[in-house]
Simulated scan of single mutants.
Amino acid sequence: MARLEALRARIGDPFEWSSSAKASLLLGITFLLHTQYVLWAHYLLNVPGHEGLVNGDFLRGHLDYFHMLLVTSATLLGFMLLLRRSTGEHRWVEYVATHYYGLSLCYFSFHIGTLSLPTGAVITGAPVVGFILFSHGAVLWALFASLSLLAVLSYASAFGFLPYAPAISGLTENGQLSLFWLTSMFLFTLPHLVVLTALAYYILNRWRRREEEIRTLSMTDPLTGLYNRRSILAHLWYEHERSKRQGPPMAVMMVDLDNFKQINDTWGHPAGDIVLVAAANALRGSLRQNDQVGRFGGEEFLVVLPGADVENAQKLGERCRQAVAELQVDIGDGQVLKVTCSIGLACFEQGLGDESEALIKSADQALYSAKETGRDKVVLWT
């Protein structure tokens, strides 16, 4: 698992790759596919009895073109790898790579049939992956060019201007499909399916992880890692509505760090941030599994306690207060700060209004009372 994560980190996020990196990937795939076709052609021409399987004269006449395409693929791949080291974005290379990929495969599909299984796999799979990875313009133009060429080759065969699948001989035997060419078609198709499926899986998996990271960032406070104000209010609204419908009590705590402005003024805002993080961790560690805490603003935290009646809420409030009071916050240079908090508590079973804002207002009033009567205490709204 660690090696897999290290490999993922080395590959990086495909959405952040440069155009030359994306083009290098596609040209590398193209080079491997061309290598497969060249090796297969040499194998067919050298296997005993190949005359019954392949049109040897036609294939020999095109073998030099096969080699030229393989050399061109290697040259373009090397150029793209060198281009990756340069600065700046080169969007035009995506057009070069996608067009070369599509048009060169059209040439090979002409030899084994433009309506063959490998051709169908590329036509259906490659654009889908291409739209995810490359610019839409590059994929659309390459798709248009490739489909146009396939159409020209297919209709030229239909009207007798070109032979259809001229490299193939003995496609059927006694009215049955040749087992050799059936297996060959699947072998031609397999690399396309493996590559396209692997790319789609990896890219979409990264996309899901990226979306989850964005969703998490939109919900959390970047300093403390707690829910942000919008998220904790949404959670409060959900639990409040559930309490109204199904009847279990719930409670809300407003937590405010005492004399926090003095900490910022005396020790600086970096020290204040350290204190906030320590207090957030103390609150989080004092709550039950289903309780939620969020940063309400500044040094204030909002805690939602589903299913808690007055007695349980007061116990939880006292536990949170004590956890914060026991903190020894190291702010560096041998300086250790003590911090306390005041807590205002309101319970829905007390007959508060039907809106969740009423709970917040009541808890805030209780918090104000705790501040006015000495701080470092839990006050229940009455």
Rank of each mutant, 00 (worst) to 15 (best):
I232R: 02
L53S: 08
V122R: 03
T114Q: 09
G247C: 07
T30S: 14
I274T: 15
T183I: 09
P191A: 05
A142R: 08
V378Q: 04
F79Y: 13
R375G: 01
L76P: 08
N174P: 06
S231F: 09
R60D: 10
P191T: 00
R206A: 13
A200W: 09
N312M: 08
R208L: 12
H111V: 00
H99L: 11
L82T: 03
W92I: 01
A313H: 02
H240C: 01
D256W: 00
R60L: 13
L233Q: 15
T373A: 14
L226P: 03
F144W: 13
E355Q: 06
G294E: 06
H42C: 09
T75Q: 09
L217H: 11
L149G: 07
S178N: 04
S104I: 00
L257S: 03
P191F: 04
Y101D: 02
R91Y: 14
G353V: 00
S184K: 12
V38I: 08
M80D: 07
H99I: 01
S356C: 13
T75N: 09
T266I: 02
A151D: 13
A251G: 05
L380Q: 01
L352N: 03
V378W: 09
L32E: 15
S20L: 04
L187K: 09
P270K: 02
F188K: 07
T197Q: 08
H67M: 14
P248G: 07
F131V: 01
I11S: 10
T124Q: 09
Y238E: 15
A165D: 02
V277G: 08
L105E: 02
A21S: 15
G344Q: 01
M219I: 07
M80H: 10
I132E: 11
F31V: 05
L103M: 05
Y155Q: 05
T72C: 12
E51Q: 11
S286C: 04
F131E: 05
Q289A: 13
S356K: 08
I360Q: 07
F161C: 07
P222I: 04
L337H: 06
A358I: 09
R229W: 10
V139P: 10
V277A: 09
S154V: 00
Q322F: 10
L345R: 02
L276K: 01
E355S: 14
L223C: 06
Q335G: 06
H111L: 15
N264H: 12
V252M: 11
P118E: 04
T72W: 08
D258W: 01
K371F: 06
W267H: 15
D256M: 05
T224S: 14
V252A: 08
V339T: 08
A370M: 11
E94N: 06
I203D: 04
V293H: 08
G298Y: 05
H99S: 13
R85Y: 04
A121K: 00
L83G: 14
S154W: 06
T30Q: 14
L103W: 07
D13Q: 11
Q262D: 15
L217R: 12
L25Y: 14
E311K: 15
I112A: 07
M80V: 00
G12S: 02
S369K: 15
Y368L: 03
N174F: 11
S362F: 12
V277S: 10
V93W: 07
E299N: 07
G120Q: 01
A280N: 08
L26G: 07
